[in-house]
């Protein structure tokens, strides 16, 4: 057994040295064709995302993008949000479905704890946790609703709400009921599906952005991006909170 372990270690170290050598040769290769780290932004797909003219037939006709003007393909100032919620929304929808599958599987596999070691948190923690939860949830709502103007969005804000509920699960023995999370998560998923189907009915393509885009940089702009990000935030928050409620007790 001992000798076998030594052999496994030596073999793994040799394998890792081989992988490191191959990767170093690939990174420092200077022949033509390997432009992974030396490409310009003009050669990539993201150039079209920056100028907001992906679906036009005469591509890249537009000369400039200006804050305060209207009439673009989508009105999000944060381009990562534009990529996630508008251009690649189908991808994001399937990813949220994977999160739903994970939380359903955890609920299926977990049982209630039988032999529990009772340990309540101290009085300082129990006094401080509700105030911290309040501030965390307010910041999370700000992050979710300003996803099209500043960094953040549904995923980060939903995870922040879930971490606030994790604080509650750590500090108190009496837990919140899991029924609300189990009710909210499929409802948000159905809302996303309804948004996609209404886009199919009104504009002719699944998940089309059918609301008016508004002027670039305004608070209420960018069409359906605020609605979709709010739905994604509810879904991520309830899914991760349901997972942590299952694990904690």
């Amino acid at each position: 057994m001992k000798r076998n372990e030594l052999l496994i270690n030596i073999f793994t170290i040799i394998l890792i040295i081989l992988i490191a050598a191959i990767v170093y040769l690939a990174l420092t290769d200077s022949r033509k064709g390997l432009t992974l780290f030396s490409a310009r932004l003009e050669d990539r797909v993201s150039y079209r995302y920056l100028f907001k003219c992906v679906s036009e037939t005469d591509a890249l006709k537009q000369r400039s993008v200006r804050i305060g003007q209207s009439g673009y393909e989508n009105g999000a100032a944060n381009i990562v949000t534009a990529v996630i919620v508008d251009y690649r929304l189908f991808d994001t929808f399937c990813e949220v479905l994977i999160l739903f599958a994970a939380s359903a599987g955890v609920t299926l596999l977990m049982e209630k704890r039988k032999k529990r070691i009772k340990k309540e948190a101290g009085i300082i923690v129990q006094t401080a946790v509700p105030m911290i939860m309040l501030f965390t949830i307010v910041v999370a709502f700000y992050i979710i609703l300003h996803g099209h103007l500043s960094p953040g969005g549904g995923f980060s804000g939903g995870a922040l709400i879930a971490s606030a509920f994790i604080l509650q699960f750590i500090a108190f023995e009496k837990k919140l009921s899991k029924r609300w999370f189990a009710l909210l998560e499929p409802l948000a998923g159905l809302g996303l599906l309804a948004f996609g189907l209404s886009g199919l009915y009104l504009r002719g393509s699944f998940f089309a952005n059918f609301l008016p885009t508004g002027s670039l940089g305004a608070t209420i702009s960018a069409g359906g991006i605020m609605i979709v990000y709010a739905l994604i935030g509810i879904k991520v928050a309830s899914g991760l909170s349901s997972i942590s409620a299952d694990f904690s007790g």
């Binding site: 932004l41 990539r44 000369r63 990529v83 996630i84 999160l99 500043s150």
Partner: peptide, 30 residues
């Protein structure tokens, strides 16, 4: 990659690539 001023085609584009960041953001939650 957050638009704060106007960008034009002829001038220098001072942005990083937004597409890998979107993929990473999806991958962390998964």
């Amino acid at each position: 990659p957050i638009l704060t001023s106007n960008i034009t085609r002829d001038g220098f584009l001072p942005f990083v690539d937004p597409l890998p960041q979107a993929l990473v953001l999806a991958s962390i939650v998964i």
